[in-house]
Simulated scan of single mutants.
Amino acid sequence: MSMIDRIRRRRMISREARAINRAWEAAPTQALRDEIAVFAQRRMPY
């Protein structure tokens, strides 16, 4: 994997993490927050 690919991948991961955080903070119910948390755990590569 090239250095540029690594940088792009890191940026994509950061962008997804921020989007998930925004969705979690904006969720109107705890149940929806729980679902977002489960989704994030399955989605994130670490």
Rank of each mutant, 00 (worst) to 15 (best):
E25R: 14
D34S: 14
E35Q: 15
R22F: 03
Q41Y: 09
I36C: 07
V38Q: 10
E35D: 15
A40M: 07
A26K: 13
M1R: 10
A23E: 14
M1P: 10
R43M: 13
Y46I: 08
P28E: 07
P45K: 07
S2V: 03
V38C: 02
A27H: 03
R42S: 10
T29F: 01
N21Q: 08
W24P: 00
R42F: 11
I20R: 01
Y46L: 08
A37H: 08
A26N: 09
A23R: 15
A31S: 12
D34T: 11
E16R: 08
E16Y: 04
A26S: 13
R8L: 14
A40P: 04
M44E: 12
M1Y: 10
A23C: 03
R10T: 13
E16L: 14
R9Q: 13
W24M: 13
A40E: 15
M1A: 14
A19P: 00
M3G: 01
E35M: 08
M44T: 11
S14C: 03
R10D: 13
A26Q: 11
I7H: 01
E35G: 02
R18T: 06
S14L: 09
S2K: 12
R42A: 15
T29G: 01
I13K: 03
V38S: 07
R22C: 02
P45E: 11
I7P: 00
A23I: 02
A31F: 00
L32H: 04
A31Y: 01
I4K: 08
M1N: 07
P28W: 01
R11L: 14
A19R: 14
W24K: 11
A37K: 11
R43Y: 12
D34L: 08
F39V: 09
T29D: 00
N21Y: 02
M12F: 05
M3Q: 10
A27K: 03
R9K: 14
I7T: 09
R8M: 10
F39M: 15
A37Y: 04
R42Y: 11
R9H: 07
I20E: 02
Q41W: 06
T29H: 00
E16S: 05
M1T: 06
R11T: 04
A17S: 08
S14I: 00
I36M: 05
A31N: 09
I36Q: 02
R43A: 14
I36Y: 02
R42Q: 13
F39Q: 12
W24R: 12
M44Q: 15
I7Q: 06
Q30V: 13
M1D: 08
S14R: 12
S2F: 05
R11C: 03
S2Q: 06
Q41I: 12
M12R: 14
L32Q: 14
I20K: 01
L32C: 00
M1H: 10
I13F: 05
V38N: 05
S2E: 09
R15Q: 12
T29V: 03
I36K: 02
P28I: 02
M1I: 10
A40C: 06
M1S: 09
P45A: 13
I4D: 12
R10E: 13
R15T: 06
Q30L: 11
M3V: 09
A27R: 03
M44I: 04
S2R: 07
I20N: 01
R8A: 10
E25Y: 06
E25A: 10
I4F: 06
A31M: 04
R6F: 04
I20G: 01
M1F: 13
